[in-house]
Design a protein around this nucleic acid. Sequence first.
DNA 1: CTTGAATTAAAACAATTGTTTCATACACTT
DNA 2: AAGTGTATGAAACAATTGTTTTAATTCAAG
Lengths: 218, 218
Amino acid sequence: MDAIQEQTRDRLLEAAGEIFAEFGYRATTVREICQRGKANVAAVNYYFGDKMALYIATVERAHCSGPELLDVVWPTGWTPQQKLAVFIRQWLEQQLAEDRPTWHMRLMLREMSDPTDACVKLVEAYIRPMANTLRGIIHELVPGDLAEQRGWMIGFSIVSQCLFYKVHRPIAELLVGREEYSQLNLPLLADHITRFSLAALGQGEPLTASTSGVERMT
Amino acid sequence: MDAIQEQTRDRLLEAAGEIFAEFGYRATTVREICQRGKANVAAVNYYFGDKMALYIATVERAHCSGPELLDVVWPTGWTPQQKLAVFIRQWLEQQLAEDRPTWHMRLMLREMSDPTDACVKLVEAYIRPMANTLRGIIHELVPGDLAEQRGWMIGFSIVSQCLFYKVHRPIAELLVGREEYSQLNLPLLADHITRFSLAALGQGEPLTASTSGVERMT
DNA sequence: CTTGAATTAAAACAATTGTTTCATACACTT
DNA sequence: AAGTGTATGAAACAATTGTTTTAATTCAAG
């Protein structure tokens, strides 16, 4: 039956995703994947051909179960400020989710800083839609000519802040100290990044206005 | 003489730095290092013991020839706005320098997102001083209580923007398009990040004030 | 029950890895 | 010039890598 063949194929795919996301392509062995996937060493080549094909399949699977930021249709009446707040918060939630299949985002981030052959596909299917969503928000936030001139840089300024807490988490934790870093929870980070970015664009009070905006957001 | 033994040792160290920085620890082979360093395969173990010791030595060498942002003594009379502008620009310059031994920064960044045993040393000797410099600037820019509460996050918001253009350059280039991305040169980026961050902190005009600040800076 | 294709398992494959061994070449001291 | 200790070179080491081969097993259809 298909139920059984698909079973080990899926187990392999899931195991590969976790390990690839954690150690990267070259640092993971097919033996380790097969061990976690409870399959024989030959299973990888049987189902996928070779290791790289398995990796590509893993990346594709990762952005198939993609996030909700891809093609957002915003409720009518929302201000761009609200949209940006939701965008940032959802990005962070997906990035910092501890419990769920967290390896999707990890694998994507790894591909983003150390691209392989799967990179181009990933950009078109996953990243560009998200970029378009963000660019739409930015177009609402700032005058048209500025958005044309600096739209990309403004977008990068926003997402880079989000990416930081996942990509450079080890260093940030070492720098701040473990217990103090643990206080930088998701709502606090989302609030900070949102207000920092809005203030930079002249929308919203600058950070010096010491409203402890966390409670305001949640 | 020492001149000769030190010679191949240094050649090895330099070659290792370049390759480690480009491909990471596990993905680089000692044979490749020795080939570029024009030494025998046994040279690595002869001079350093094993591969990991060579890697550690490489990281230490990287942050020995560290940047000028470590312990800055600012000229008297400088405003914190000026200091931040210089800080950001120097960071970007060191990051995006094409010609010079660019692998120092690359190796550091790699260690920052994929830490190995050398990570702790790197943070204390290299990153923490830079963080302190930035935190000093932030303390001048914003009120004391806010700097205490959100000092780390503000700092992360600033450096994350700088890091982005190095760490995620491949994706950014794919997203923007090669020719358009090439227009994002160093002065433009430095200007944008500086004004974005200053505006976020209520110091300086927000980005919507469409002064094409590039010429103003250079 | 038999047949036959699909899946799994075990073993071996060649290639590459980090590391070690040992012989040679070299430089410097006596 | 002989001897000594260091640096280099070529070869081989054992271990691990991705991949292939071949046999055993499974399981539904005839």
